[in-house]
Computed example of a mutant assay.
Amino acid sequence: MARHADEADDILLAAADSGHLFAKRDMAFRMMKGHKRFGTRRQGLFLWLGIYPDLFRLGLADVYDERLR
Score class of each variant (00 low, 15 high):
1 M>C: 11
2 A>F: 07
2 A>N: 15
4 H>M: 06
4 H>D: 11
4 H>E: 10
5 A>Y: 08
5 A>T: 10
6 D>E: 14
6 D>L: 12
7 E>Y: 02
7 E>T: 04
8 A>S: 05
9 D>G: 02
9 D>N: 04
11 I>M: 10
11 I>P: 02
11 I>R: 08
11 I>Q: 14
12 L>G: 01
13 L>C: 01
13 L>R: 04
14 A>K: 03
14 A>V: 07
14 A>Q: 05
15 A>H: 04
16 A>R: 04
16 A>F: 06
16 A>H: 04
17 D>M: 04
18 S>T: 01
18 S>P: 00
18 S>D: 14
18 S>E: 12
19 G>D: 11
21 L>V: 15
21 L>Q: 08
22 F>Q: 05
23 A>N: 03
23 A>T: 11
23 A>H: 09
24 K>A: 01
26 D>M: 12
26 D>H: 02
26 D>Y: 03
27 M>W: 04
27 M>K: 07
27 M>V: 01
27 M>E: 02
28 A>Y: 00
28 A>K: 01
29 F>Q: 08
29 F>V: 10
30 R>S: 05
30 R>N: 00
30 R>K: 03
31 M>C: 11
32 M>L: 13
33 K>L: 13
33 K>R: 11
33 K>E: 14
33 K>Y: 07
34 G>K: 07
34 G>H: 12
35 H>G: 00
35 H>T: 00
35 H>Y: 05
35 H>L: 00
36 K>F: 12
36 K>S: 12
37 R>S: 07
37 R>T: 09
38 F>G: 01
38 F>C: 00
38 F>H: 01
39 G>C: 08
39 G>T: 05
40 T>Q: 05
40 T>N: 09
40 T>L: 02
40 T>S: 12
41 R>S: 00
41 R>D: 03
41 R>G: 01
42 R>V: 09
42 R>K: 12
42 R>M: 13
42 R>P: 02
42 R>T: 12
42 R>C: 05
43 Q>Y: 03
43 Q>I: 05
43 Q>G: 00
45 L>A: 10
45 L>D: 07
45 L>R: 06
47 L>K: 00
47 L>V: 04
49 L>W: 08
49 L>P: 03
50 G>W: 06
51 I>Y: 00
51 I>W: 04
52 Y>S: 11
52 Y>V: 09
53 P>C: 08
53 P>M: 13
53 P>I: 07
54 D>P: 09
54 D>Q: 11
56 F>C: 12
56 F>R: 15
57 R>M: 15
57 R>D: 13
57 R>A: 15
57 R>I: 14
58 L>Q: 13
59 G>V: 12
59 G>R: 13
59 G>C: 09
60 L>D: 15
61 A>L: 15
61 A>Y: 14
62 D>R: 06
63 V>G: 03
63 V>L: 03
63 V>M: 07
63 V>D: 11
64 Y>V: 08
64 Y>M: 10
64 Y>D: 06
65 D>N: 04
65 D>R: 06
65 D>K: 09
66 E>M: 08
66 E>Y: 09
66 E>W: 13
68 L>H: 02
68 L>W: 07
68 L>I: 14
68 L>S: 03
69 R>E: 15
69 R>M: 14
